[in-house]
């Protein structure tokens, strides 16, 4: 059967041409093609990695920003709170001080009034005393005739007492 009988001449030609094809293609086609493919794959890989890194970096930066904003907000709130406290304190203190001052003034006023009163009372006492002495003197000076004149006299004297 010729169909399954290998032919030496064809075998020689085939081995010869096929080796040349393998050699030439391996050296001048497959090597540059595979190298280029590898190179491209590597560069794609590297680009992807770089993109991922950039993304991470950006996320980090964004996170940082957020944190800073958060901090600033907190700081602001704290400041406001503090300011409020200070304000309240100041008001409180002022109120306290005012109260004390007012008390002091009132106290002083009261004291001075007391003093004046005492003085006035003393004065009145003195006047009453002197008046009484005067009245008594006048009564004694008059002749203590009859009862009606006495009465009249006393009324006159009382009228004379000017109460001030």
């Amino acid at each position: 059967m010729e169909l399954i009988k290998p032919d030496l001449g064809l075998l020689i030609w085939m081995l010869f041409s096929f080796s040349i094809v393998v050699f030439v293609l391996a050296k001048f086609a497959w090597r540059p093609i595979l190298a280029a493919l590898k190179h491209r794959e590597r560069s794609i890989q590297r680009s992807l990695e770089a993109a991922q890194r950039a993304k991470d970096e950006l996320a980090k930066i964004e996170f940082g920003n957020e944190k800073i904003t958060q901090l600033a907000k907190l700081e602001k709130e704290n400041l406001l709170k503090e300011a409020k406290e200070i304000k309240n304190n100041i008001i409180e203190e002022a109120k306290e001080a005012a109260k004390i001052e007012a008390k002091k003034i009132i106290e002083e006023a009261r004291n001075s009034v007391e003093h004046e009163k005492n003085l006035v009372i003393n004065d009145i006492k003195n006047q009453i005393a002197s008046l009484s002495v005067d009245i008594a003197e006048k009564i004694l000076k008059q002749n203590l005739g009859d009862e009606s004149t006495q009465k009249q006299l006393i009324d006159e004297l009382v009228k004379d007492i000017d109460l001030n």
């Binding site: 041409s17 030439v24 086609a29 497959w30 540059p32 093609i33 280029a36 493919l37």
Partner: peptide, 16 residues
Amino acid sequence: GVFMIILFISVAKTYK
């Protein structure tokens, strides 16, 4: 073989 050599070397050149 010649066809393959021409084809793939030209493709290799495109790759380069």
